[in-house]
Design a protein around this nucleic acid. Structure first.
Lengths: 250, 250
DNA sequence: ATACTATGCTTATCGAAGAAAGACATCGTC
DNA sequence: GACGATGTCTTTCTTCGATAAGCATAGTAT
């Protein structure tokens, strides 16, 4: 097996499960301990995962082995998100022209997209890359790159958006409230979201339960503007809203 | 069997399976090891796949770029490239408005840029990301994302370029020749390069010695159009060219 | 408490297998 | 016969797996 293949497989496991032990790698890939270690060392050196005692973890994971409560909660949100994006992915059909907002939830969505006969536009550089690798026809918005979120924002991005007419759009959000609608902490990202929404026939907001009744600094859409895809809603006042799609109720 | 047919078949396998071993090629195409190797070498040189130990992988697979890891030893061009980009970086001054072409050499350039008071535009998603992380004000071109090179290409990218007026532009190239000028294997990338060059006051082509007297399929600029930054030139006919900047002669 | 031992993880080193690269011979085409 | 493409052979490098050595941590006996 090619080294690159092996590395790819290790990264896939880590990506999926967020961590892996040396032993798991040895068993799954049928390689020696030495090789497994060497692989982790180079992958770590390339910043593709983080080598830890006994194995490795995915990037960007604040991994608290000590604090069970925290990791449990993280996992819960992750599972919730997974259900949401899994459903959202089924909404994408042949010949759709889809806008994909930057953000971690929409990024997760990409992994579940199976429809190859749709065209995508996004303002997230990582999103664009993943979509393209996925075999999707992908366009990225032009404009200023915001370093923190690796998203394209600003006047140019907004102007670039106006020529598109999307059949569907998928958006992340920081807060949802009946009064203030959809909110996010960043003004420039809000502008892009706002215009992008205007260009979509159908807007979908992907939101786990933690987002409800939370208000961030900038509103980018009224509450009715988008269909909300979420899992189980606790709050009664949202129960009766027509634009909420509850997936996989338990 | 025709060479082209063999190459086509190899590319098909790589495209389909994302990687291939030398042994597989030998078996499937019934050719000798040398020929298989030779084929991979030229396909790699043409940027149609990536040659790795034991075989080859498809482009754009996000495998680490061998550049920034510990194995500098084998890449003879690396040191040459380093000198080239180190010099190129000094050309970027305060208030410059710089276009940075996609490609591995220009990507390397980013690491040496110290001027934070310049603004950058690029069509490479990785380039944009690195520039932004570097603390530079960065814009990315909008348009279709080509998966192989992770570069933005196509009509939209070209249109987006036309509004900019750059003070300087840095370009990679696959081939340089006196007659055919600067050449690259891909048509859509050539289009972008061509227009970008038109928008720059000063164009710089970064080229290690292996690029000279090499001709790829598409010309994107005449020989005189750009200043060429390179190391020691072997070929006498280029020695007298005014637009060649030889750095760090030894 | 101190020292000893066991355990699990890590790193270093070495020989074997096999891959890469270069030199050279062969074959067919012009 | 010159040339380009291909195959064969040899030399040199990589990679892999195994083993041994180094190092912490936890447990145990003194």
């Amino acid at each position: 097996m090619l080294i690159e293949e092996r590395h790819r497989q290790i990264l896939d496991i880590v990506e999926e499960r967020k961590s892996v032990t040396i032993q798991e790698i040895i068993d799954k890939l049928n390689i020696s301990e030495s090789t497994a270690r060497r692989d982790l060392t180079v992958l770590d050196a390339h910043g593709q995962l983080i080598k830890v005692h006994g194995g490795a973890t995915a990037l960007g994971m604040n991994y608290y082995t000590k604090d069970d409560d925290v990791s449990y909660r993280q996992d819960l949100n992750r599972e919730e998100k997974r259900e949401i994006v899994e459903y959202a992915a089924t909404l994408i059909r042949s010949n759709d022209f889809v806008y994909l907002d930057a953000g971690t939830t929409t990024e997760m969505l990409i992994d579940y997209i199976t429809e190859k006969n749709a065209v995508f536009v996004t303002n997230g550089t990582v999103h664009a890359k993943k979509l393209a690798q996925n075999g999707c026809r992908t366009y990225i918005l032009g404009g200023e790159l915001k370093v923190a979120t690796e998203a394209v924002v600003g006047a140019e991005a907004v102007a670039g958006l106006e020529k598109y007419n999307f059949t569907k759009g998928f958006f992340g959000t920081n807060g949802i409230s009946l009064q203030k609608g959809f909110t996010t902490p960043d003004v420039s990202e809000a502008m892009v979201k706002r215009v992008a929404m205007k260009q979509c026939d159908d807007c979908y907001a992907l939101a786990d339960s933690s987002k409800f009744n939370h208000i961030s600094s900038v509103t980018f859409a009224d509450f009715e503007k988008a269909k909300i895809i979420t899992t189980s809603i606790k709050n009664e006042e949202y129960k009766k809203c027509k634009n909420i799609l509850e997936v996989n109720k338990r």
